[in-house]
Simulated scan of single mutants.
Amino acid sequence: MRRWKDPHNNFGVLWTAATRNFTVEWRTEQSFEKYDGDDEDGSIQADLDSGELVMFDSSIRVLDHYGKEIAADYLGASVYKSGEVLKFIHDGYFMDMLNMACLGAREHYQKRPVLRPAA
């Protein structure tokens, strides 16, 4: 039971958006862990081992203009057919992660101390 690096998908930074002050990026990394989700008959693990399915971990990070991470959201063990990793964007998880990361960035800046001018 050995899984090979998936040649049909790209991993790394797959999506990015930039504004004047922020960069948001979606990064994926192929996961070689044993599948721990619902798999009563073992077919998902068998398809992962054969390469028909691929499992990956995702992160959406919000970076400030210095490249420092100010907020992020993570999701592990997503399973898709080999070659169809980009369908993740359209399946709802991507938008949920994006919303959570952007909410974290807003909270980060709301907690920031405000400097007042000297009197």
Rank of each mutant, 00 (worst) to 15 (best):
Q30G: 01
R27V: 07
Y35T: 01
S78Q: 09
E107K: 12
G104E: 14
A71K: 03
L86N: 09
M100Q: 13
N9W: 03
H90N: 10
R3H: 06
Q110G: 08
I70D: 07
V54N: 03
F32P: 05
A71D: 03
Y74F: 15
N99Q: 15
G12W: 01
V13S: 06
Y109I: 12
V62K: 01
T28N: 13
V24M: 15
A72L: 06
P113R: 11
V79L: 12
E84C: 11
T28D: 14
A105Q: 05
S58L: 02
K5E: 15
A118L: 15
A72I: 00
M55Y: 00
G83S: 01
N99W: 12
H8Q: 14
L63C: 01
K111Q: 15
A101V: 05
D38H: 10
A46C: 01
G67C: 08
T19M: 14
D64C: 07
G12T: 02
V114A: 15
D47N: 12
Q110T: 07
A119Q: 14
R61P: 02
N9L: 06
H65N: 13
G92P: 03
A72M: 09
A77I: 00
I60D: 04
D57K: 04
D91R: 08
Y80T: 02
Q110S: 13
S50A: 15
Q45D: 07
P7E: 09
L14R: 07
V79M: 08
E84G: 04
Y93R: 11
F22A: 05
K34Q: 10
V62Y: 09
M97E: 05
V13R: 12
V85Y: 00
L103W: 03
W4C: 06
L86P: 00
D64E: 08
L75W: 02
G12M: 09
G42P: 05
D6W: 08
K68A: 14
M1F: 13
K87V: 00
V85T: 10
S82M: 03
D91Y: 12
F56W: 03
V54E: 03
E33T: 05
E25R: 06
G51A: 06
Q110L: 14
E52T: 01
D41Y: 11
A119F: 14
M1E: 13
R3P: 03
R112G: 04
A17R: 09
S50P: 08
T19S: 15
D38V: 06
F32C: 02
D96N: 11
W26N: 01
V114G: 13
G37W: 00
P7Y: 05
D64R: 05
V54D: 05
G42Y: 04
